[in-house]
């Protein structure tokens, strides 16, 4: 079975805009200060398009998808 792609956030680049959490509430929570917490790093197939959108729209390019 192919392994699922993984979600990763670069904490140095991230500015806490929170857009990623709006697009992917299933995978991302926001902390007290508005920075993303990855709940599950494995991206299920049905969320992959949304994850790719988050990767594109993050203003600081902090969202990354690691393909296996």
């Amino acid at each position: 079975m192919a392994r699922m792609p993984k979600l990763r956030i670069n904490p140095i680049a991230c500015n806490g805009h929170g857009m990623c959490a709006e697009l992917l509430p299933e995978l991302i929570d926001l902390d007290d200060w508005g920075y993303p917490i990855i709940k599950t790093s494995e991206i299920p197939l049905n969320l992959l398009d949304m994850a790719k959108r988050a990767e594109r729209i993050c203003p600081t390019l902090a969202v990354m998808i690691l393909e296996n």
Partner: peptide, 11 residues
């Protein structure tokens, strides 16, 4: 540079 650090550690 990182929100959880510059917010979290002072807290």
């Amino acid at each position: 540079q990182c929100g959880p650090c510059f917010n979290g550690l002072p807290e």
